[in-house]
Amino acid sequence: MSSQLLTVSPSPHIHQQQQTVSNLMFGVVIALTPAFIVSLVVFGVGAIKVTLAGVFFCMLFEYLISKYLLKKEANLADGSAIITGILLAFNLPANLPIWIIAIGSLVAIGLGKMAFGGLGNNPFNPAMVGRVFLLISFPVPMTSWPVAMESQWRLADGVTGATPMEIFKEGLEAGLPISEIMGQLPSYFTLFLGGQGGCIGEVSGLALFLGFLYMLYKKIITWHIPVSLLATVFALTGLFWMINPAQYADPVFQVITGGLLLGAFYMATDYVTSPMTSKGMLIYGVGIGVFTVVIRLWGSYPEGISFAILIMNGFVPLINKYVKPRRFGEVKPA
């Protein structure tokens, strides 16, 4: 007693041990592993190259910016830069040149995150900022996808092909009937397992879904955003499909193809840029769903989830201000 001073602090005096910031972040990394393995099988070396480059550049820029521009201790241990890197890479084609990835990382970390003061302060999802920047600046390399299962072991200049979404949209523009376009595509089951071309991360719906279950189990995320988002997309596209099946694809196709699952499970659920209350999360998910469908059906891009997430990110402060949790003992208006 006399040798050692007692510590005094306000309550609570205990703290849960399971979840720390880095635990949560690495939980997401673990959840992304199955999708990475599938992309490895499908795209081979390219997937490793792009993912490593994404992670490396994101960490590098985070370090450099916080050390030399913000002049504070760089905090790489929290793992947020790693996640931004992985998610950015997962949204890129496996044959993208490294210098483009570097630019994307700089924009994602610098503009998307550090410009606002670093982790916790950025209104927009950094990986999405990076990806959209690249998509607008380098449309050709960003949409030249290596054909699945064919170019695994070549480092560059593989055969390129189109994503199912692109095939579909181009087919429609060419005036082909729906049934014929569908005939060019693999079966839904193959698509879900990992047969579709496209970005590294969006290949296999199943792998993404496994990761989602893991995150739910570990209580890293809640169900609200993914479920409301997917349900909205399913319902809206289903509605148009029922009105005119010759013009619009069926909802199952819409949900399992493209980056929708990746976006719904990993991008939209980003802590910093999503609403704080469960009610708010539902609104946010529905909003993303609506924008995604609008862009997919009537926009000039075949894919809409990235834009939809960024648009809804802009609404988050508003949602947080007006959507409050259900207060205990709230007097119900009679």
């Binding site: 910031v21 609403p275 209350t277 205990f328």
Partner: peptide, 29 residues
């Protein structure tokens, strides 16, 4: 409480994970 459990860990930035909103029994933020 033994000393290894008596200390708080250093405070980090809020990552807006909304866990606190979820556990508040009074529905506050």
């Amino acid at each position: 409480i033994p000393s290894e459990e008596a200390h708080r860990k250093p405070m980090k930035v809020c990552i807006r994970c909304s866990q606190c909103v979820g556990v508040c029994p009074m529905g506050l933020e």
